[in-house]
Amino acid sequence: MAAQKGKDLLLKIHNGTTYVTVAGLRSRRIAFNAELVDITHAESVDRWRELLAGAGVRRASLSGRGLFKDGASDALVRQQFFDGVIGNCQVAVPDFGTITGLFQIASLEFAGEHNGEVTFDIALESAGSLTFVAA
Protein backbone atom coordinates (compact mmCIF):
# COMPACT_ATOMS: atom_id res chain seq x y z
CA MET A 1 0.00 0.00 0.00
CA ALA A 2 1.48 3.34 -1.04
CA ALA A 3 1.42 6.43 1.15
CA GLN A 4 -2.06 7.88 1.64
CA LYS A 5 -3.47 11.22 2.76
CA GLY A 6 -4.59 11.14 6.39
CA LYS A 7 -7.63 13.24 5.54
CA ASP A 8 -8.95 10.33 3.44
CA LEU A 9 -9.37 8.14 6.54
CA LEU A 10 -13.04 8.85 7.25
CA LEU A 11 -15.31 8.11 10.22
CA LYS A 12 -18.99 7.90 9.31
CA ILE A 13 -22.03 7.40 11.57
CA HIS A 14 -25.38 6.18 10.26
CA ASN A 15 -28.22 8.61 10.98
CA GLY A 16 -31.04 6.19 10.17
CA THR A 17 -31.03 7.02 6.47
CA THR A 18 -27.44 7.34 5.33
CA TYR A 19 -23.87 7.46 6.59
CA VAL A 20 -22.83 10.95 7.71
CA THR A 21 -19.12 11.79 7.78
CA VAL A 22 -18.12 13.18 11.19
CA ALA A 23 -17.02 16.63 10.05
CA GLY A 24 -14.10 18.64 11.33
CA LEU A 25 -11.93 15.70 12.38
CA ARG A 26 -8.27 16.60 12.08
CA SER A 27 -6.99 13.22 13.22
CA ARG A 28 -8.54 9.77 13.19
CA ARG A 29 -7.41 6.37 14.36
CA ILE A 30 -8.73 2.82 14.30
CA ALA A 31 -7.16 0.03 16.34
CA PHE A 32 -7.96 -3.68 16.31
CA ASN A 33 -7.23 -5.76 19.40
CA ALA A 34 -7.63 -9.38 20.43
CA GLU A 35 -7.33 -10.85 23.89
CA LEU A 36 -5.05 -13.82 24.17
CA VAL A 37 -6.09 -17.00 25.98
CA ASP A 38 -3.05 -18.52 27.67
CA ILE A 39 -3.22 -22.32 27.94
CA THR A 40 0.35 -22.87 29.14
CA HIS A 41 0.66 -25.75 31.59
CA ALA A 42 3.33 -27.69 33.51
CA GLU A 43 4.12 -29.87 30.49
CA SER A 44 4.43 -27.05 27.92
CA VAL A 45 7.59 -27.60 25.89
CA ASP A 46 10.52 -25.82 27.56
CA ARG A 47 7.95 -23.72 29.46
CA TRP A 48 7.08 -21.74 26.34
CA ARG A 49 3.73 -20.03 26.44
CA GLU A 50 0.91 -21.70 24.53
CA LEU A 51 -2.13 -19.84 23.22
CA LEU A 52 -5.59 -21.06 22.27
CA ALA A 53 -6.27 -19.93 18.70
CA GLY A 54 -9.45 -17.97 18.03
CA ALA A 55 -10.62 -18.00 21.65
CA GLY A 56 -10.07 -14.40 22.75
CA VAL A 57 -12.44 -11.47 22.51
CA ARG A 58 -11.77 -9.20 19.54
CA ARG A 59 -12.60 -5.50 19.49
CA ALA A 60 -12.03 -2.34 17.54
CA SER A 61 -11.53 1.17 18.88
CA LEU A 62 -12.08 4.35 16.90
CA SER A 63 -10.89 7.75 17.99
CA GLY A 64 -10.65 11.21 16.55
CA ARG A 65 -9.89 14.80 17.37
CA GLY A 66 -11.20 17.86 15.61
CA LEU A 67 -13.36 20.94 15.66
CA PHE A 68 -17.03 21.54 15.10
CA LYS A 69 -17.70 22.29 11.47
CA ASP A 70 -21.00 20.78 10.40
CA GLY A 71 -24.24 21.15 12.38
CA ALA A 72 -25.80 17.87 11.24
CA SER A 73 -22.87 15.62 12.15
CA ASP A 74 -22.21 17.54 15.39
CA ALA A 75 -25.82 17.03 16.49
CA LEU A 76 -25.72 13.34 15.52
CA VAL A 77 -22.58 12.72 17.59
CA ARG A 78 -23.94 14.55 20.64
CA GLN A 79 -27.34 12.83 20.44
CA GLN A 80 -25.87 9.35 20.07
CA PHE A 81 -23.60 9.93 23.05
CA PHE A 82 -26.29 11.29 25.37
CA ASP A 83 -28.79 8.60 24.30
CA GLY A 84 -26.19 5.84 24.79
CA VAL A 85 -26.92 4.58 21.29
CA ILE A 86 -25.12 1.61 19.80
CA GLY A 87 -25.11 2.74 16.21
CA ASN A 88 -23.86 1.60 12.86
CA CYS A 89 -20.53 3.18 11.91
CA GLN A 90 -18.20 2.95 8.99
CA VAL A 91 -14.50 3.67 8.64
CA ALA A 92 -13.04 4.18 5.19
CA VAL A 93 -9.29 3.47 5.03
CA PRO A 94 -7.86 4.59 1.67
CA ASP A 95 -6.49 1.79 -0.54
CA PHE A 96 -7.31 -0.71 2.23
CA GLY A 97 -11.08 -0.95 2.48
CA THR A 98 -14.13 -0.17 4.56
CA ILE A 99 -14.91 -1.48 8.05
CA THR A 100 -18.57 -1.43 9.08
CA GLY A 101 -20.28 -2.43 12.30
CA LEU A 102 -21.92 -1.44 15.56
CA PHE A 103 -20.10 1.02 17.82
CA GLN A 104 -20.93 3.00 20.94
CA ILE A 105 -19.44 6.40 21.71
CA ALA A 106 -17.38 5.70 24.83
CA SER A 107 -16.20 9.26 25.40
CA LEU A 108 -16.82 12.73 24.07
CA GLU A 109 -14.62 15.55 25.32
CA PHE A 110 -14.66 19.28 24.60
CA ALA A 111 -11.78 21.73 24.99
CA GLY A 112 -11.12 25.35 24.17
CA GLU A 113 -8.40 27.91 24.62
CA HIS A 114 -9.05 31.57 25.35
CA ASN A 115 -7.78 32.62 21.92
CA GLY A 116 -8.77 29.52 19.91
CA GLU A 117 -11.58 27.35 18.67
CA VAL A 118 -13.56 24.74 20.60
CA THR A 119 -12.29 21.25 19.81
CA PHE A 120 -13.58 17.79 20.59
CA ASP A 121 -12.19 14.32 21.13
CA ILE A 122 -14.31 11.26 20.43
CA ALA A 123 -13.72 7.58 21.19
CA LEU A 124 -15.90 4.70 20.03
CA GLU A 125 -15.78 1.00 20.93
CA SER A 126 -17.09 -1.87 18.83
CA ALA A 127 -20.29 -3.50 20.07
CA GLY A 128 -20.61 -6.47 17.71
CA SER A 129 -19.07 -8.17 14.73
CA LEU A 130 -17.45 -6.07 12.03
CA THR A 131 -17.44 -6.53 8.28
CA PHE A 132 -14.59 -5.63 6.00
CA VAL A 133 -14.81 -4.85 2.28
CA ALA A 134 -11.48 -4.47 0.49
CA ALA A 135 -10.90 -1.39 -1.65
Rank of each mutant, 00 (worst) to 15 (best):
A2H: 06
A2V: 12
K5G: 01
K5V: 02
G6L: 08
K12F: 05
K12V: 01
T18R: 14
T21M: 03
V22P: 14
V22N: 07
A23C: 09
A23M: 06
R26P: 00
S27F: 00
I30D: 06
A31E: 11
F32D: 02
F32A: 08
E35V: 08
V37N: 11
D38S: 13
T40C: 09
A42N: 10
E43R: 04
R47L: 10
R47T: 13
E50T: 15
L52P: 04
A55W: 02
V57H: 01
V57G: 01
R58D: 10
R59T: 13
S61N: 04
R65Y: 00
F68E: 05
F68D: 04
F68I: 07
K69A: 11
G71A: 04
A75Y: 01
Q80V: 08
Q80N: 14
F81Y: 14
F81K: 13
F82H: 07
D83T: 15
G84A: 08
V85N: 11
C89R: 08
C89P: 05
P94I: 06
G97E: 04
T98H: 00
T98N: 03
I99C: 00
T100K: 07
I105S: 07
I105F: 02
L108F: 03
F110R: 10
H114P: 06
N115Y: 09
T119P: 13
D121K: 05
A127P: 04
G128T: 12
T131P: 02
F132R: 06
V133R: 09
A135S: 14
A135Y: 00
